[in-house]
């Protein structure tokens, strides 16, 4: 009986955990993962998304992950990317959600609008201070509280 339990549970668990090896690596899941992180070639030049809180004087600050999604940076990046990829409507919905959170937060009262943007940058040059991020597109723009859009 014990021998049967040992082999049955082992075959089931090892089979389940090993099964994603036969799937395409980008067909990831949970808890059975292909573990595709860090696997694909990315190159040096990237288009990165961010949310910016713009003040009345034109100064802009990056909106932190906790006001985009939650305390998890990767979740916030994914939430931003997915909304932008899904098109204008989704981007505007997320923009309004972020604006609502800024309006409710005393520390962000100076902000008059939120912008969801994509910028292009050479990562290695940028980190060395040799390059600046270049604005590619503003996907959504929405007012904070009674601010100007």
């Amino acid at each position: 009986m014990e021998r049967a339990r040992a082999y049955l549970l082992s075959v089931v668990l090892l089979g389940a955990v090993g099964w994603p090896a036969f799937r395409a690596p980008w067909e990831d899941g949970f808890p059975l993962s292909t573990y595709p992180m860090f696997a694909q070639r990315r190159g040096r030049v990237h288009e990165v998304v961010s949310a910016r809180a713009v003040a009345a004087d034109g100064g802009a600050e990056l909106v932190p992950p906790s006001l985009i999604a939650n305390a998890e940076t990767m979740q916030a990046i994914r939430t931003l990317s997915r909304a932008i990829r899904a098109g204008q409507h989704e981007a505007e919905r997320l923009c309004e959600r972020i604006a609502g959170r800024l309006a409710a937060d005393e520390a962000w009262r100076r902000s008059v609008r939120v912008e969801l943007v994509t910028e292009r940058v050479d990562a290695i040059d940028y980190l060395a201070g040799r390059a600046e991020a270049e604005l590619v597109r503003v996907h959504a723009r929405c007012p904070v509280g009674g601010g100007e859009p």
Binding site: V48, V49, T73, I77, I124, Y126
Partner: peptide
């Protein structure tokens, strides 16, 4: 590099 870049662009650590 990409990881540091996108985190810096979202105001994260």
């Amino acid at each position: 590099a990409y990881d540091a870049l996108r985190k810096s662009q979202i105001g994260s650590l």
